[in-house]
């Protein structure tokens, strides 16, 4: 049972990585095609596309990390911790029997620990780098003097 779960997890992760790579390579291929249509040689178009795309490995890692954080399995685990906590709370408050009420407390603690673990495992530098504005570059306006205005 555990082996099957582990195998599923590994397959899921592999698929996730493949999907990210496929998406990023599609973008690079489209850039290559654009440059080739502009008259560049295949090698030059490839080099220009990679330059234009930026740090492929860094982007890949960031996307895989965010995808993992957002995966179905992770969402199921998060929901499970909430359900366990609610069950624990119900057992704790509705039972006058000390031993059963104590079981409720244990469930709550398990849920909190699980949630904390999920949170800590989800942390990475990209969690804190939400400066999307830094990805924009302003270039020189064309010679005719026309500029972006907020009119």
């Amino acid at each position: 049972m555990m082996k099957i779960a582990l195998a599923n997890l590994l397959t899921h992760h592999k698929q996730l990585v493949l999907n990210v790579e496929d998406e990023l390579h599609f973008h690079i291929e489209m850039l290559e095609r654009k440059y080739a249509e502009q008259g560049m040689s295949t090698a030059d178009a490839k080099a220009a596309a990679l330059r234009r795309f930026g740090n492929l490995e860094k982007v890949r890692k960031q996307c895989v990390h965010i995808s993992r954080r957002n995966s179905l399995l992770r969402r199921v685990l998060k929901t499970s911790t909430i359900l366990i906590a609610l069950t624990g709370l119900a057992i704790h408050t509705l039972n006058s029997n000390y031993k059963i009420a104590r079981m409720g407390s244990v469930l709550i603690m398990i849920a909190v620990a699980g949630r904390l673990l999920l949170y800590v495992r989800g942390l990475s530098p990209s969690t804190f780098l939400h400066r999307t504005n830094s990805l924009l570059v302003v270039t020189d306006p064309p010679d005719d003097g026309s500029q972006l205005t907020n009119a």
Partner: peptide
């Protein structure tokens, strides 16, 4: 006039 760094979009 305004460019998005391609890779960083993802």
């Amino acid at each position: 006039l305004l460019k998005v760094e391609d890779g960083s979009l993802y």
